[in-house]
């Protein structure tokens, strides 16, 4: 009885830990999406660039003139990096979601075991 309760306790702790991890992963995905959007906009703007329009890059407090090719490759590099990061976070999120589902199942099982063991089942946090 106490054994199952202790197990349930540790399970729900793990569950909340996974949920927190999921939340941070979702947040970082959101941030990456925003960065991707911003960089894509800059890339589009470079494509629309007309002759005689100069590109400057903000370095600290000053604007430095920069080649179009150089600036383009910077942005392309960023987009590539962000794309990879996005993929990685996406995988992480999927992985965490699976883990959470599994833990949920385990918690339900443990609760059922507790109920079968008699006594009023103390409601241990198992809310999705």
């Amino acid at each position: 009885m106490a054994e199952i309760q202790a197990r349930l306790q540790s399970l729900s702790e793990e569950f909340t830990k996974f949920q927190q991890e999921l939340q941070t992963a979702v947040q970082s995905r959101q941030k990456l999406e925003a960065q991707k959007q911003e960089n894509a906009n800059v890339q589009k703007e470079f494509e629309r660039l007309k002759d005689g329009e100069n590109i400057y890059k903000l370095v600290g407090p000053v604007l430095l003139k920069q080649d179009k090719i150089e600036a383009e490759s910077t942005v392309n590099g960023r987009l590539e990096f962000i794309g990879k990061e996005l993929e990685r976070t996406e995988d992480q999120i999927k992985d965490l979601q699976e883990k959470i589902e599994k833990k949920k199942g385990e918690i339900i099982q443990a609760q059922a075991g507790l109920q079968a063991g008699g006594g009023a089942p103390g409601k241990v946090a198992a809310k999705g």
Partner: peptide
């Protein structure tokens, strides 16, 4: 004018294309 196009990049545009932007 110099227009901020995001992520630390700025472009010097004439007034017309800045307005278009």
């Amino acid at each position: 004018v110099v227009v901020d196009i995001g992520t630390g990049f700025y472009v010097e545009k004439d007034i017309k294309s800045a307005a278009a932007f």
